[in-house]
């Protein structure tokens, strides 16, 4: 029973991180129908930069803020340089370009920093806590993970529901041509969307790196879990990203805990297959018919 509880708690923490990745993917997919396969690699690069900042002697939080800022900038730049020229082309081109960018970034990271693993600190203790006299596997850091991702979700919600900027961004995502006819400038908003998405990816990376250690490909698996979560929740639903993230995190935790950790990536694939068979549009997809 305690084992089950601990696995569940671990699954929740992982699920929140996965949800952040999924949210990043969903933000971009909604606006441009592109899945940014390079999101994980972009976050990986940014984490290396945070690592460098950290080793300059700055504290954890300065590095944290620097990473998020770099992520925003990186996302915006990527959109302007790589994605904008693809507008109006087949979505296949965008997939190939983001995938190629993933490879390129991993190669560059390997060339600069080598493939050895580095440890990245956590801001809070990663040791499980005693509640009464049972030891539970939920550390202060896990609490931080959950709160950080919740904060991200709430920020996004406020942005999209409560501000004019968010209203414009939603209009661009749902109906770009109509948005233009209402005087909305589409391009800068798409750039902003990529920036926010990249920042969500960076947050996920910073939350996962203390437990996984820093290498050029440490985000690969997290990215495919994020993709899983996004598919389970519906690729265009931010709420779905959160629920899909938790569902994915928990399923993987149970598979890993009871059957073996090496099965997790394949379990994620199975989850995608099953959810596409049962509910192709995703749990939280909007009811509108698909765009053709």
């Amino acid at each position: 029973m305690q084992f089950f509880l601990n696995i569940t708690l671990g699954g929740i923490a992982t699920g929140m991180i996965v949800a952040a990745v999924a949210l990043g993917l969903v933000l971009i997919f909604r606006a441009t129908n592109i899945v940014n396969f390079a999101q994980g690699a972009m976050a990986m690069m940014t984490t290396y930069i945070a690592y460098a900042v950290l080793h300059q002697g700055s504290g954890y939080w300065l590095a944290f803020v620097a990473a998020l800022a770099t992520g925003l900038l990186f996302g915006a730049l990527t959109q302007v340089v790589l994605i904008r020229p693809l507008q109006g082309k087949s979505p296949l081109n965008a997939i190939i370009v983001t995938f190629g960018f993933l490879i390129f970034l991993e190669g560059v990271a390997g060339a600069i920093w080598g493939s050895q693993t580095r440890t990245y600190p956590a801001p809070f203790s990663e040791a499980g806590q005693k509640i009464g006299n049972t030891q539970i596997a939920f550390s202060p850091f896990d609490v931080f993970v959950v709160l950080a991702v919740l904060a991200l979700m709430i920020l996004m919600l406020v942005l999209f529901r409560g501000t004019d900027l968010g209203l414009r961004m939603r209009a661009v995502a749902f109906a770009p041509e109509t948005a233009r006819l209402l005087g909305v400038r589409v391009r800068p908003l798409l750039t902003l969307g990529w920036a926010l998405s990249a920042a969500a990816g960076v947050l996920a990376a910073l939350l996962v790196v203390p437990t996984s250690s820093l290498t050029p490909n440490f985000m690969d698996v997290i990215l495919i879990y994020g993709f899983t979560a996004a598919v389970v929740g519906g690729l265009d639903s931010p709420v779905g990203a959160l629920v899909g993230g938790l569902a994915t995190g928990l399923s993987l935790a149970y598979v890993g805990g009871y059957l073996g950790g090496s099965l997790e990536p394949m379990a994620a694939l199975a989850l995608v297959i099953v959810s596409l068979m049962i509910r192709p549009e995703g749990l939280f997809a909007r009811p509108a018919p698909r765009r053709v």
């Binding site: 004019d164 209203l167 414009r168 939603r170 209009a171 749902f174 109906a175 041509e177 109509t178 948005a179 006819l181 209402l182 005087g183 909305v184 909007r286 509108a288």
Partner: peptide
């Protein structure tokens, strides 16, 4: 320009649609 085919933004409320029109 009111385009062909009642192009309201279906995912938004009536109020949000109107707000969007007045933004600029």
């Amino acid at each position: 320009h009111v385009p062909e085919g009642r192009s309201v933004i279906e995912e938004m409320t009536v109020d949000e649609n109107l707000r969007l029109g007045s933004l600029f």
